[in-house]
């Protein structure tokens, strides 16, 4: 144990300000504290603001606690709130909606992002302009994008899509209501529009980090476009694809703005929006907390996979 700590210390001191071997300082010695000190303020803040509230949520999820004026006083409720979460159909639906929307949006925007990145990796007139046009949707404030898609693009009658369909001669185009008839699809379209640029940026960076010599060799050896793509580009881009999917999932699963701005939860409530509604409108703090804990468990599953992908990138750096 002691030796491994000592090794750790020496290795960690590696190249840097203290390349001289660390003298025999104990683990809690001055030296290691001066190393750790710059890290502490950030760690303390994060524990206070992110970990502590979650512990409180965990405690509250086992309590019967409603803030409605006529509600009984708060008390211990055991697993009642969790039972309610898993037996109430609207909450179960929220879980499915979360999964369905996240998967759809991530998969479609990653696929579209890859196609566009492959196109932008070629030289053609105005490539820089197209790249700028592609990035712009990601730089619209999410709630602004959501309210405009809900009220200006997909709105029944005076929305852009109905208007264009009408201009093209589609009968009764002014009566097509995307938001009320297909609320989930509407949100998915809006978020695919916002997140494809993100995927595209990461994948394009991946494509451009391919070794040009390898590509040249493949061309000289007579590899066709498909062969080059299948055996050289894809294996190289795979890591970037994984990374963009993981990061995209982390952000998209937390989506709240689009639902608030586009449908107000109509047949499209995901878990974050359900927590918001139960807590903000219904004021049932116990159930809202239990839902919050369920989101965290889901996120941990996603995160475990995500951390593995990121850690493979980090260990590569450590090995260098």
């Amino acid at each position: 144990m002691n030796t491994s700590v000592a090794e750790e210390e020496t290795r960690a001191s590696g190249p840097g300000f203290d390349s001289a071997p660390v003298p025999h300082v104990s683990k809690w010695g001055r030296e290691s504290w001066s190393r750790r000190a710059p890290l502490l303020p950030a760690l303390v803040l994060l524990i206070l603001v992110t970990q502590l509230p979650f512990v409180a949520t965990l405690v509250m999820s086992f309590m019967s606690w409603s803030a409605q004026p006529d509600a009984p006083p708060k008390s211990f409720a055991g697993v009642d709130n969790y039972k309610q979460v898993f037996t109430t159909s609207s909450y179960r639906k929220a879980v499915f909606t979360s999964v369905e929307m996240t998967v759809t949006i991530v998969v479609v925007s990653a696929a579209l992002g890859l196609i566009i990145a492959l196109l932008l990796n070629h030289k053609f007139p105005g490539r820089g302009v197209v790249r700028t046009m592609m990035i712009a949707p990601f730089l619209i404030v999410p709630i602004a994008a959501a309210v405009f898609w809900g009220n200006g693009v997909l709105q029944t009658g005076f929305g852009l899509v109905d208007g264009l369909l009408g201009n093209l001669g589609v009968d009764n185009a002014q009566n097509i209501s995307f938001i009320t008839d297909h609320p989930k699809l509407s949100i998915e379209l809006e978020l695919i529009w916002q997140w494809t640029p993100f995927m595209m940026l990461i994948l394009l960076a991946g494509l451009q980090s391919r070794d040009p010599e390898v590509m040249e060799a493949a061309t000289i050896d007579g590899a066709g476009g498909w062969q080059t793509f299948r055996y050289i580009t894809m294996p190289h881009v795979r890591r970037y694809l994984e990374l963009s999917i993981v990061l995209g999932t982390i952000f998209i699963v937390q989506n709240f703005d689009s639902i608030l701005g586009m449908t107000g939860g109509l047949n499209s409530t995901n878990i974050p929006y359900a927590v918001y509604e139960v807590f903000y409108s219904a004021k049932d703090y116990g159930v809202a907390s239990a839902l919050g804990v369920v989101v965290v468990i889901g996120s941990i599953i996603v995160a475990t996979f995500g951390l593995r992908v990121v850690s493979s990138l980090l260990s590569e750096e450590e090995a260098r």
């Binding site: 960690a12 950030a42 949520t57 982390i250 703090y285 919050g292 965290v296 951390l307 850690s311």
Partner: peptide, 30 residues
């Protein structure tokens, strides 16, 4: 530059706090 021991554990702790959905803590914060 001046790495602490177990620096990558610290990195993952930072990242894991970002993966925690904000809704999970919003009620106590409120």
């Amino acid at each position: 530059i001046r790495r602490v021991p177990k620096w990558s554990d610290a990195m993952f702790f930072f990242l894991s706090t970002r993966m925690l959905p904000p809704v999970a803590g919003i009620l106590p914060i409120y």
